[in-house]
Write a protein that binds this DNA or RNA. Structure first.
Length: 568
RNA sequence: UGGGGCGUGGCCAAGCGGCAAGGCACGGGUCUUUGGAAUCCGCAUUCGUAGGUUCGAAUCCUACCGCCCCAGCCA
């Protein structure tokens, strides 16, 4: 019931359009049917996630269907490896295709038959022009093209040639099948587009069965119509292709009504851009191939695999998708919005724990030697059911280096000489002495605790503004922590020239810290779980790297930090 | 001088002739044993610009300006 309301509430133009289609019964008895059509030639990124989830949620909201269909019509660029990674990513995102996993190549024979009928009906012809000649004949943006000398080849000759193309009698590039449309169209896509080309190449699914392959503009609309896709969503740059899409679908309905399920329609929307990162396949590929990052799943990348490895949840991605909306205007989403979605999701999911990323030792001088006291701390504030844990406390602890200032400004609430601060869940301590090394940097703090201030039974009446986290030296468990920051130091690296966008890479995009002390309960953590390191951020215990008792955490997102912000 | 799109606050985005939703960001308050979270308040007399139609325009008309995409036998 909630789903129905959501569909009603969503205000983007595509939902409005579908609602109208439904009201006017424009779909007949067909259910709303969408699809995501990736080409298996690379990894999916967050921009794709927007498209995937948009299609998936439309199907879900309107009680329709969502297909996953690989657009695998170019064997030269496509590989099984990518099919696998794409399937894994989409499944992880939670977009369920309910068994409707298809490949364009599944319908190659049907498409071949359609091409035959196109030829028979005089809608297509075999053209012997070379690639260069085709380009020249196409004309320019402002000048009409010239008709191919082969355009009016007799039907029987076309059929014969096309048959021989399929049989492999001709080399790559020697001939193509073209749709006969309009060489003087202002839309270049309509100037007798190539719909089949000869490619003597091994296909990852059909093997060597074919040496001619359909082009996207021919294949895609036909596949949609075949599958009964009612709303074929794609990005803005395909707007120019819509007349051709319609042309193909119309011919398919005319010539192959027996296999066509629906007269599919294409609708375009703006794809998602995001600041401080790059989304173009070429740039992403360079980052990976030239080792600027550690692979397609490097947590600094906007790839689904990277986000997953970083620890981002699919729920946060879905929320982000909802919040960025859908329109036709070019847009660049703010990273801050994505981080907001991540924090909001993890706020109620990630148990709290204490870890000190940049430790400085504190000796509590009035603490009884060798005494250990246990404190009970809640795993989640405002959520009893998340349970509690025991945290040991003793005389030597680590605190965060920046939780101490020797000469603090008036609005600094943390530890400073002569000042008091509360150790989260434990006692209030006062800093008595600062120990430094030769160079003058602080190496150790001597403090005293006030026994009256025990957490939960404070009888001191003291009120301190600052609360800091800590970990005892004696009980600490050590981990490696990867602190990730934006991969680029400028807002729009995508705008930089291809040649030097790598110079904009943030030198501090990854800071790995070893031996980060964490409270001992972390030993019970399961790889793959997420925590909030109190006052620091959300961290993911990376399963791939946390093996054999080793702990490797990735920072997913920082907590908002109004103190740090005020410092700027 | 071709065709297709888009222009609403810093970033997204509703709105479709009746007097500018919402989110993020930002600023401020309350609360708080996370300077987290929560919560409250503020934040476009104005919708690329200029005209016009209308009692009334972001919404209709006209012109202009700016930005994006298209000349693969890629998708």
């Amino acid at each position: 019931m909630e789903e129905k309301n959501e569909a009603v509430e969503k205000t983007n133009f595509i939902y409005s359009m579908i609602r109208e289609d439904l009201e006017q019964k424009a779909l007949g008895k067909n259910p709303v049917h969408t699809r995501f059509p990736p080409e298996p030639n690379g990894y999916l990124h967050i921009g794709h996630a927007k498209a995937i989830l948009l299609n998936y949620f439309i199907a879900k909201d309107f009680k329709g269907r969502f297909n996953l269909r690989f657009d695998d019509t170019n064997p030269i660029k496509e590989e099984q490896e990518f099919v696998d990674s794409i399937i894994e990513d989409i499944r992880w995102l939670g977009a369920d295709w309910e068994g409707r996993l298809f490949f364009s190549s599944d319908y190659f024979e049907t498409k071949y038959q359609f091409a035959l009928r196109l030829i028979e009906a005089g809608y297509a012809y075999v053209c012997d022009l070379s690639p260069e000649e085709i380009r020249d004949y196409r004309g320019t943006l402002t000048e009409a093209g010239t008709e191919s000398p082969y355009r009016n080849r007799p039907g029987a000759e076309n059929l014969d040639l096309f048959d021989r193309m399929r049989k492999g009698e001709f080399p790559n590039g020697s001939r193509v099948l073209r749709a006969k449309i309009d060489m003087s169209s202002g839309n270049l896509n309509m100037r007798d587009p190539v719909i089949y080309r000869i490619l003597h190449a091994h296909h990852h699914r059909t093997g060597d069965q074919w040496c001619i392959y359909p082009m996207y503009d021919f294949d895609h609309p036909f596949s949609d119509a075949l599958e009964g896709i009612t709303h074929s969503l794609c990005s803005i740059e395909y707007s120019d292709h819509r007349p051709l899409y319609d042309w193909i679908v119309d011919r398919a309905v005319e010539l192959m009504p027996e296999v066509i399920k629906y007269r599919s329609r294409q609708t375009e929307f703006a794809r998602l851009g995001m600041n401080y990162t790059v989304m173009s396949k070429r740039k992403l590929r360079r980052l990976v191939e030239e080792n600027y990052v550690a692979g397609w799943d490097d947590p600094r990348l906007p790839t689904i695999a990277g986000l997953r490895r970083r620890g981002v949840t699919p729920e946060a991605i879905a929320d982000f998708q909802q919040k960025t909306g859908v329109s036709r205007a070019d847009s660049t989403a703010d990273l801050a919005l994505f981080e907001h979605c991540i924090r909001q999701d993890l706020e109620t999911k990630a148990p709290r724990i204490m870890a000190v990323l940049d430790p400085i030792k504190v000796v509590i001088t009035n603490w009884p030697a060798s005494k250990t006291e246990m404190f009970e701390m809640e795993n989640m504030p405002d959520n009893e059911s998340a349970g509690k844990r025991q945290v040991p406390f003793s005389g030597t602890i680590f605190i965060e280096r920046d939780d101490f200032m020797e000469e603090p400004p008036k609005n600094f609430f943390r530890l400073a000489p002569g000042r008091e601060v509360r150790l989260k869940g434990a006692y209030i301590i006062c800093c008595d002495k600062v120990i430094k090394d030769q160079s003058g940097s602080v190496t150790e703090l001597h403090c005293t605790y006030d026994p009256q201030t025990r957490s939960g039974s404070d009888s001191s009446g003291k009120k301190v503004k600052g609360v800091i986290h800590w970990v005892t030296v004696e009980h600490a468990v050590y981990a490696t922590v990867n602190l990730y920051d934006t991969l680029f130091s400028v807002e729009n690296p995508e705008e930089a020239e291809e040649g030097n966008f790598t110079t904009l890479i943030n030198p501090d995009s990854l800071l790995t810290i070893d031996n980060v002390p964490i409270e001992p309960s972390i030993r019970e953590a399961h790889p793959g779980s997420r925590f909030q390191f109190m006052r620091k951020g959300y961290f993911y215990l990376e399963p791939e790297r946390s093996t054999g008792g080793e702990l490797v955490f990735n920072r997913i997102a920082q907590l908002r930090d109004s103190w740090a912000k005020a410092q700027k």
